[in-house]
Amino acid sequence: MARLEVLKTYKIYIGGAFPRTESGRYYTPKNTKGEALGNVCLSSRKDVRNAVVAARKAFGGWSERAAFNRGQILYRIGEMLEGRKAQFVEELQLQGATTAKAEKEVNAAIDRLVYYAGWCDKVSQVSGSVNPVASSHFNFSVNEPTGVVGILADQSTSLIGLVSQIAPVIAGGSTCVCIASEDLPLCAITFAEVLNSSDVPGGVVNILTGSPDEMMKPMATHMDVNAIVYAGKDATMLNSIQEFAVENLKRVRNYPQDWMDSGAQGLHYITDLMELKTTWHPIENIGGATSSY
């Protein structure tokens, strides 16, 4: 007699734990063949709230980690993803991709993580500056993480969009709350499991499944969210996000990219979610050798 398969329960990822949605709601997305993908959490605005709290709590520690250490962790995520490649390929297939396409997407996601892992300890060197002010001061500018970032992930891909949006945010030292693709949510939750086994501190990345339309507002109006990344092309959605964002002047970034494109990565995806800090300090001119003394 054939063995009965154990089915996977898809939960959400908040503060390093895998709770069900507090609302108790679920939805059942289907693939193009009409096959059910599973019962997935239909997260609520309270899940958004909880996730933002977790992200804020994690921000201090994550932002103060050495950039080198963040790079190590991002590379570790890549390693773990490589190790579970087959599972992602399978999920992508279930969600409608061909084997070749699925493999290509997983490979691209791994490579993207490795790419951003390498950026962590180079951002300041490339994007910062020492500014030659005319007065007797040492003056330099460096990028600093912006805080808690809300991510509305690419709806047209299950993995590569999500990874391409999360990686630069955490590489720069911010933490995030990510709303996964509504129709293709499986890889998002499995990716959370990868994160959870990759030394990423709990709360640095939080992943919710459900309706972006429903969760956009609580996220974009949330006074403790510092920036929103929106990957879609929907002008109405973007307009609403921008209007909601005004109340605490969230930085809003819109990336209507094809994330499978090898050019859909770069330093600016990191610095877009960073602030620039300029520091001044006097330079003393000691001794009697100068005319001013």
Binding site: S129, N131, P132, V133, A134, S135, H137, N139, S141, T146, N226, N248, L249, R251, E275, L276, K277, T278, T279, W280, H281, P282
Partner: peptide, 30 residues
């Protein structure tokens, strides 16, 4: 966005100026 250590209210064309949070976004200078 700007931190002055052992000095205050210094400005220079080469030095980026601008805020975090509700103090705005974008930098001017530099």
């Amino acid at each position: 966005g700007v931190v002055w250590a052992n000095t205050y209210n210094k400005f220079d064309p080469t030095s980026p100026f601008g805020g975090y949070k509700e103090s705005g976004f974008g930098r001017e200078g530099g």
